[in-house]
Every structure is written in C-alpha cells, then in structure tokens.
Lab assay of single mutants.
Amino acid sequence: TKIIYHMDEEETPYLVKLPVAPERVTLADFKNVLSNRPVHAYKFFFKSMDQDFGVVKEEIFDDNAKLPCFNGRVVSWL
C-alpha cells in the first residue's frame, strides 16, 4: 500500500510503502513506519468519501481502524 502524507505546511508530500494490502492497512501500520517522528503529537486526517459531502478529510484516531483507500493508495495529513 502506498501512503502519501502531508506534514504541517510543507509543500511536498512524503510517500511510504507498506507490505499490507490496501483494504487491510490500519492506523497502527502507518504509525509504525513513522517511528522517527513523535506520532503522539499529531492528529491524523485521511482523504475519505462521505455520502453527504463527497470527498473530505476524516480524522482517524483508533489504531485498529482501517484506512480509507483511493486507487490503491492512502492520502493523509498530519
């Protein structure tokens, strides 16, 4: 699974690849690859589809939650 993530106000996003199927990747999986960053200091928002509003940034805080996936990749903002 490819996860593209944006940090603070930085213009260029980062990319990490996880050896987990897109439909199975969790917030804990993502946090594990960010071990060099203080993950407890961040809120995690993900590109998600809402039936009422369309594409939104959804906050996910449960480490066991599966991450929303679009075209085989996850897009996140920290």
Rank of each mutant, 00 (worst) to 15 (best):
T1P: 00
T1S: 02
T1A: 01
T1Y: 05
K2F: 15
K2W: 12
I3L: 09
I3C: 03
I3M: 00
I3H: 03
I3F: 02
I3P: 00
I4D: 00
I4S: 06
I4T: 14
I4Y: 13
Y5H: 02
Y5V: 08
Y5K: 01
Y5I: 13
H6R: 07
H6T: 08
H6C: 08
M7S: 04
M7F: 09
D8M: 06
D8N: 15
D8A: 04
E9R: 10
E9H: 11
E10C: 13
E10I: 07
E10Y: 05
E10A: 10
E10W: 05
E11W: 06
E11K: 13
E11T: 08
T12I: 09
T12V: 11
T12F: 12
P13Q: 13
P13L: 05
P13N: 03
P13A: 14
Y14D: 00
Y14L: 14
Y14W: 06
L15V: 15
L15K: 09
L15P: 00
L15N: 07
L15W: 14
L15Q: 15
L15E: 15
L15D: 14
V16M: 06
V16G: 01
K17V: 14
L18W: 01
L18M: 04
L18D: 01
L18I: 12
L18V: 12
P19R: 08
P19T: 06
V20S: 03
A21I: 06
A21C: 09
A21V: 05
A21P: 13
P22H: 05
P22D: 02
P22Q: 04
R24H: 10
R24I: 07
R24T: 11
R24M: 11
R24G: 09
V25F: 01
V25H: 01
V25A: 09
T26I: 02
L27A: 00
L27E: 00
L27Y: 02
A28E: 05
D29E: 06
D29A: 06
D29H: 11
F30T: 00
F30G: 02
N32R: 13
N32L: 08
N32Y: 05
N32C: 08
V33F: 07
V33P: 04
V33G: 13
V33T: 08
L34T: 02
L34G: 01
S35G: 13
S35D: 11
S35P: 14
N36P: 13
N36A: 12
N36E: 11
N36F: 13
N36D: 10
N36H: 09
R37G: 08
R37I: 09
R37T: 14
P38W: 08
P38R: 12
P38K: 13
V39T: 10
V39S: 07
A41G: 10
A41R: 11
A41Q: 12
Y42K: 01
Y42G: 02
K43D: 03
K43E: 03
F44R: 04
F44I: 02
F44T: 03
F45N: 01
F45G: 02
F45M: 07
F46L: 01
F46V: 03
F46Y: 06
F46A: 04
F46Q: 04
K47M: 10
K47D: 10
K47A: 10
K47S: 10
S48L: 10
S48E: 08
S48G: 08
S48Q: 12
M49Q: 13
M49W: 07
D50T: 13
D50A: 12
D50S: 15
D50Y: 07
Q51Y: 08
Q51M: 13
Q51V: 11
Q51W: 07
D52E: 10
D52L: 06
F53A: 14
F53K: 15
F53W: 11
F53C: 14
F53G: 15
G54P: 15
G54I: 15
G54C: 15
G54Y: 03
V55G: 09
V55M: 11
V55T: 08
V56C: 14
V56H: 15
V56Q: 13
V56I: 13
K57D: 06
K57S: 13
K57Q: 15
K57H: 12
K57R: 14
K57T: 13
E58Q: 15
E58M: 09
E59P: 06
E59W: 07
E59Q: 09
I60P: 01
I60A: 02
I60H: 00
F61I: 08
F61N: 09
F61Y: 09
D62C: 15
D62G: 02
D63R: 03
N64T: 13
N64S: 09
A65C: 08
A65G: 06
A65W: 01
K66R: 11
K66N: 09
K66G: 06
K66H: 10
K66T: 07
K66W: 03
L67Y: 01
L67T: 01
P68D: 05
P68C: 00
C69R: 05
C69L: 12
F70Y: 10
N71G: 11
N71L: 04
N71H: 08
G72C: 02
G72M: 01
G72T: 00
R73E: 15
R73G: 09
V74Q: 08
V74P: 03
V74L: 01
V75G: 02
V75T: 10
S76P: 05
S76D: 03
S76Y: 07
S76G: 14
W77Y: 14
W77M: 00
W77V: 05
W77L: 01
L78W: 07
L78M: 07
L78K: 04
L78H: 03
L78A: 04
